[in-house]
Design a protein around this nucleic acid. Structure first.
Length: 553
RNA sequence: GGCGCAUUGGUCAAGAGGUCAAGACGUCGCCCUCUCACGGCGGAAUCCAGGGUUCGAUUCCCUGAUGCGCUACCA
C-alpha cells in the first residue's frame, strides 16, 4: 500500500480537494500594506486584561492599515467549552472598543472566509491532513497512553528528549515493515482509535549548536533563529479534532491572515508551525509574539496573569469597579507602545486612532500591571470626557453593577454640575478616577450618603460651634466667592485666628490657628470631611436650603 | 532535567561603545493655597554578576545567576 492508498483508507470521502479550498478562499483583495489579523480565543468564558492587551495589537494593526480584523473561535478543546462564552467574549471586547470586521458574531458569521468556528471546520482539516498523509508527511498512530508513558520513561532513563519522534513510534515507518502495515490496515478497518501525527523531517537529539535553524522574522522581537522541529506532534486527535498547531496553520493560511499576534508562550512551538507551513507549501505569516502581562505573586515574584488566580484582572473587575473603557484603553496603549505617552502629551485631544501603533515599539519583556498608573491615566482621560457623558455613563454603570446608588441619578442636571466642578479652570481638577471612587467622592452631595467622617481640626475644635453659628448668621447665598471668603476671614480674625496661614506659621503663638482651620470647620459641617473642592462652589450647587439645614443641625 | 524568551530606579521605560544614563507613575520635601486636587520646583532611587574585546563598556561577545514560559491527543 502506498501513501495515497493509505490516505484514501483513512479519509475515503471528502467534499473538496485542497486546490478547491485554495480557490474558495483566495488571496484577499486589500489595499497595499493592509494587515489581516485575528483573535482566536477559546470559549472558556473568561477574558482578562492580557487578552485585551493582545486584542488591541490585532485591532490596531488591522484597522490602522485598512485591513481586516476577525474573530475566530478556537474550540478544539472540547473539555473546556463554557456555555455563552462566545457572547461574553464579544460583549466584553465590545465594551472596551474592540470591534471585529469579520468572523463570529452573535447573529452568525460575517465574511467569506468561514466557517469561523474551528469545531465546524473538521472537513477542511481532514482534507489537509489527507494531503499530508498522501505525501508521506503524516501517519496514523495507534500508540496508547500507556505505551507513550513507557516510551517517556525509557527516554528519561536514557536522557533523551521526550516525545514521539523518529525511532519511537513503530507506526511512523509502517511503509518499511509489512507487519506494521498489516497492523495499521486491520486496526483501521476495525475502527480502532488513532491519531494522525506529523512525520517530521527534523533530526532528533542534536546539540543546540548543531541543530538546523531557520530564520523567522518576528515583528516584535526581530530575527529569530528557530531550530528545526523533529517531534511527530499530533495534528488530528483521536476525536477527529485538530490540535492547535494544525488548526492554526490551516486556518491562518485559508483565512489569509497576514499577522499572527500571540503571546510569547507560543515561541517554543514555532518550529512546529514552521515545518507545517513548509510541508503544506504555504507562506509563513508575520508573527508578533508579545510579552505577557505579569503581576506580582504571593511569593513576591513576577508571574503571568492567570485566569484562575487573578479574578481581579478579569475584564469584569474593571467594569464593576467602573473604570471607563477609554481609560483602560489608554492605559493599555501606554504599556503597549513605549512612545505612546510622549505622543499623548503632544496630542492631548487627538483620538487614540491617530496614534501610529507599531510592533517594533512593543517591549519584549513582560510588564507588571500597575494599578497606580492606570488610576493616573484614568484621571486624565476622565478630564477629556464631558460631564454629561460621564453622568450618563455612571448611570449605566450603576444600573448594572451598583443599584444602591440609584439616588445619585434622580437629578441628572444636579449630578452633571457636581461632576463638572473645577474641570474648566485654567488648571482643571483631575479627581475623577473610576465609578466607585466617584460615588465616594461626591457622596456628601446627597442626603442618602452624607455623613460626618472627619473630626474638627484641633486648632479650632473648641470654637466649632461658635464658628458655625457666626457663619450661619452671616450667610448670604447670593454672595460671590470673594465676598463669601472675606466674611470667613472676618470671622477668623474676630475670633483670634490668622487671616493668612503664613502669618500663623510665622508666629504660631499669636493666634489660635488660621483661616484654613476655620474654613475646615465649616467644610466638615457641610461636607462631613476635611477635604473637598471649593466650599463656595459646592454651596452654590447644593442650594441654600441644604446649606442652611446642614449648618443648623 | 532539556529547550526558548527575558533582565536599566519600587513600577513602566528611553538610550548610545565615551551621556550629569531621558521621561512617566509612585514616593519624599518645598512653593502656590481656605482644605484637597490641579500646577510648579527640587530630592532620594537604576544599568543582575563575573570574565573577555576595547584607550574606554551599562551598551558588543561568552559564562553564570535570576525570572517567565514551553516540554499534552490544552490552548
Amino acid at each position: 500500500m502506498n501513501y495515497k492508498e493509505l490516505s484514501n483508507l483513512i479519509y475515503p470521502e471528502l467534499a473538496h480537494t485542497p486546490e478547491e479550498y485554495e480557490a474558495m478562499y483566495p488571496a484577499r483583495e486589500l489595499p497595499e500594506g493592509a494587515k489581516v489579523t485575528r483573535l482566536g480565543p477559546s470559549p472558556t468564558g473568561f477574558i482578562h486584561l492580557g487578552n485585551l492587551y493582545g486584542a488591541f495589537v490585532d485591532e490596531r494593526l488591522a484597522h490602522q492599515s485598512n485591513g481586516v480584523f476577525y474573530l475566530r473561535i478556537e474550540d478544539t478543546d472540547d473539555k473546556r467549552f463554557v456555555e455563552n462564552a462566545v457572547e461574553t467574549i464579544i460583549t466584553s471586547l465590545d465594551f472596551f472598543g474592540i470591534n471585529f470586521d469579520e468572523g463570529v458574531t452573535q447573529t452568525g458569521d460575517i465574511g467569506t472566509y468561514g466557517d469561523y468556528t474551528q469545531s465546524h471546520r473538521g472537513e477542511i482539516y481532514r482534507t489537509f491532513a489527507k494531503e499530508l498523509l498522501s505525501k508521506g508527511l503524516a501517519y496514523p498512530c495507534f500508540l496508547t497512553e500507556e505505551e507513550i508513558t513507557a516510551i517517556r520513561e525509557q527516554q528519561d532513563a536514557a536522557k533523551l528528549t521526550p516525545g514521539i519522534y523518529a525511532g519511537w513510534s513503530k507506526y511512523r515507518d509502517w511503509d518499511k515493515d509489512p507487519a506494521i502495515e498489516a497492523e495499521i490496515i486491520s486496526r483501521l478497518e476495525a475502527g480502532e482509535p488513532y491519531v494522525i501525527r506529523l512525520k517530521s523531517n527534523g533530526a532528533a537529539n542534536v546539540s543546540a549548536e548543531d541543530a538546523v535553524r531557520n530564520t523567522v522574522v518576528d515583528a516584535v522581537r526581530g530575527e529569530l533563529s528557530v531550530p528545526e522541529n523533529f517531534q511527530d506532534i499530533v495534528i488530528i486527535k483521536q476525536t477527529g479534532i485538530p490540535t492547535y498547531h494544525f488548526a492554526h496553520v490551516v486556518d491562518d493560511h485559508l483565512m489569509r491572515t497576514t499577522h499572527v499576534v500571540r503571546g510569547e508562550e507560543w515561541l517554543p512551538s514555532l518550529p512546529i508551525h514552521v515545518e507545517l507551513f513548509h510541508d503544506l507549501g504555504w507562506e509563513l505569516p508575520v508573527y508578533c509574539h508579545t510579552a505577557q502581562l505579569m503581576k506580582i505573586g504571593e511569593d513576591g515574584n513576577k508571574r503571568k496573569l492567570s485566569k484562575r488566580k487573578d479574578p481581579e484582572l478579569s475584564l469584569d473587575y474593571y467594569r464593576s469597579q467602573g473604570y471607563h473603557p477609554a481609560a483602560v484603553r489608554e492605559y493599555l496603549l501606554t504599556i503597549l507602545n513605549s512612545n505612546y505617552e510622549e505622543w499623548r502629551e503632544a496630542n492631548p485631544d487627538a483620538p487614540i486612532e491617530d496614534f501610529e501603533f507599531t510592533c517594533e515599539k512593543m517591549s519584549s519583556s513582560g510588564a507588571l500591571f500597575d494599578l497606580d498608573k492606570l488610576n493616573d491615566v484614568s484621571k486624565g482621560v476622565m478630564l477629556r470626557i464631558p460631564a454629561a457623558d460621564i453622568a450618563a455613563w455612571l448611570g449605566k454603570w450603576s444600573k448594572e453593577f451598583a443599584p444602591e446608588y440609584a439616588y445619585v441619578f434622580k437629578d441628572m442636571n444636579y449630578l452633571e454640575q457636581i461632576l463638572d466642578i473645577g474641570r474648566h479652570d485654567a488648571r482643571p481638577r483631575a479627581d475623577l478616577v473610576y465609578a466607585r471612587q466617584i460615588m465616594d467622592f461626591i457622596s456628601y452631595f446627597f442626603e442618602e450618603s452624607f455623613e460626618i467622617v472627619d473630626e474638627y481640626p484641633a486648632e479650632a475644635a473648641a470654637d466649632a460651634e461658635e464658628i458655625i453659628s457666626r457663619y450661619l448668621d452671616s450667610y448670604d447665598h447670593s454672595d460671590d466667592n470673594e465676598i463669601w471668603f472675606s466674611k470667613i476671614r472676618e470671622i477668623a480674625t474676630d475670633m483670634g485666628y490668622a487671616a493668612k496661614p503664613k502669618d500663623y506659621k510665622k508666629n504660631p503663638d499669636d493666634y489660635k490657628g488660621h483661616v484654613g482651620h476655620v474654613s475646615t470647620v465649616i467644610r466638615i459641617k457641610l461636607m462631613g470631611r476635611a477635604q473637598s473642592p471649593d466650599v463656595w462652589t459646592i454651596q452654590q450647587i447644593m442650594g441654600e436650603e441644604t446649606v442652611r439645614a446642614r449648618l443648623s443641625k
